[in-house]
Amino acid sequence: MQTTVSNRRGGLLLLLTGVLAIALIIIVNRSWFSRIAGYWRAFPSQAAQPDLEARKVSRYGNAYILSRSIALSLERAGKKETALVLVPPTSYFKAKGLNYHVPEPAVFYYYTSLKTVRPDTKDTANINYVVSVENKDIAIRKVKDKQQLSKILAEYRKYRITL
């Protein structure tokens, strides 16, 4: 009988020690735990938004939205399948006042099924469309000739290319 009481008391002591240990771990790692708490708080709004496209928009932001809009324009024109689009780097858009982190070609293809190249590409011969900024808006132009493309490439290559 005495052993049972002792075990119960020991169990309570261990429970108390455990709770104190948890409190200490939380205090020491408070910035990490506050991030986890933020994830918890985001749960209800995330659960209320099951739409796949909305989840992508929320996670990828402008990189996804603007890439999709470029692809959509070419799709509407019926040119998406045959297009190889030259997209200037992020620094170009920044200089023109647009917040657009340009995805690298593989990621652009993942987002949109549209084939793109960066200005440092070796495959310049097949480029048939060019993205630029006109009046703070994204424009897609068809390449007229090699001379025009060389000029555009030379301009875009002045901007720093980052991932």
Binding site: G11, L14, L15, T17, G18, V19, I22, I36, Y39, W40, F43, Q46, L52, R55, K56, R59, Y60
Partner: peptide, 26 residues
């Protein structure tokens, strides 16, 4: 054991958040 319960509950919450984010986020 009873004293394991607070640890298990907290760890379960941490694990659940990870599983949810794995499922939900692209």
């Amino acid at each position: 054991k009873l004293y394991e319960l607070p640890f298990i509950l907290l760890m379960a919450a941490i694990v659940l958040i990870s599983v949810w984010r794995c499922y939900y986020l692209p």
